[in-house]
């Protein structure tokens, strides 16, 4: 079994930045990635808030470039899906579809995935009207009627994006105000997005595809059906930490507890990016975590000598 100084799980901005910094420090590094570089940002067509790109940058391209930059300094990329992690072993052992690997340190950069509604038929309707990524699947709903569910920045960004493609966009939110930045509010009105306040989605109506959603007024309990061709679910994200449960400290939502040093409750194990407890989950904060984790991984390795 090959032993690396730093074994990174996940090839998004956090993971590949950790790999870049660790490799440039002369450490042996491998990144395990189940699909392709970039993580969540790879499905974003334009990233407008990553500094240095005044005209925006393609998320997929940025992911590829971060991976190439890490590789340039010697980091390996292994395209394997992790099936098991033993973080308490010495060295730490990661089993994957491409074989087993060991790391003197491990950087967990597994990110997060969209939270599901948890309604009957949701899995089966995925791709038949139920979607989780407006920039990925929006084009499938050109000139159709869609519902966006959620009240945060993602939901509002999705609604604005879809309003340029779709015949009609409803934004369904369970509260009476948005959590999204104020700058978005006016844009929603200008784009003709209809906001349905105090409402939650309680059922998915279907034939072969989604035909309507059932909405419940959270104040009165009254239910009604809203015909639509699609629903974009944007009610938050879930950290991808299932493989690590019981091995290190997680918060009540499942995020790995770590401060800015990215050190977790297990010595030699670091958490970067969206999977870590933090206030702001952005490409740049993930990248910043990567640099910090590499620094403290190096410090940990020096102290082990």
């Amino acid at each position: 079994m090959k032993i690396y100084d730093v074994l990174v799980i996940g090839g998004g901005p956090g993971g590949n930045t950790a790999a870049l910094y660790a490799a440039r420090s002369g450490l042996s590094v491998a990144v395990l990635e189940k699909l392709s570089a970039g993580g969540q940002m790879a499905t974003t067509s334009v990233i407008d808030n990553y500094p240095g790109f005044p005209d925006g940058v393609d998320g997929f391209e940025l992911g590829q470039q971060m991976e190439q930059q890490a590789q340039k300094y010697g980091a390996e990329t292994i395209y394997g899906e992790v099936t098991e992690a033993d973080l308490l072993a010495e060295p730490k052992v990661i089993r994957s579809s491409e074989g087993d690997f060991a790391g003197r340190t491990v950087v967990l950069a597994t990110g997060a995935y969209p939270r599901e509604l948890g309604l009957p038929g949701e899995q089966d309707l995925r791709g038949r009207g139920v979607a989780y990524c407006a920039t990925c699947d929006g084009m499938m709903f050109r000139d159709k009627t869609v519902v966006v569910n959620g009240g945060g920045n993602t939901a509002v960004e999705d609604a604005l994006y879809l309003s340029r493609l779709c015949a009609k966009v409803y934004l369904v939110h369970r509260r009476d105000q948005l959590r999204a930045s104020a700058v978005y509010r006016r844009a929603l009105d200008e784009q003709g997005v209809e906001i349905l306040w105090n409402s939650r989605v309680t059922a998915l109506k279907r034939e072969k595809r989604l035909t309507a959603v059932e909405l419940e007024d959270v104040k009165t309990g009254e239910k009604r059906e809203l015909p639509c061709d699609g629903i974009f679910v944007a009610i938050g994200r879930v950290p991808d930490t299932g493989l690590f449960t019981g091995q290190l400290e997680l918060d009540s939502a499942g995020y790995i507890v770590a401060d800015e040093s990215c050190r977790t409750s297990v010595p030699g194990v670091f958490a970067v990016g969206d999977v870590r407890t933090k206030a702001v989950r952005q490409v740049i904060t993930a990248a910043a975590d990567g640099a910090n984790a590499a620094h403290f991984a190096e410090e940990y390795l020096l102290n082990q000598l």
Binding site: L35, S36, G38, A42, T43, T44, S45, F60, C133, T135, C136, D137, M139
Partner: peptide, 8 residues
């Protein structure tokens, strides 16, 4: 134009 297509 499909993000997931590009990822795979």
């Amino acid at each position: 134009w499909c993000g997931y297509c590009r990822r795979i």
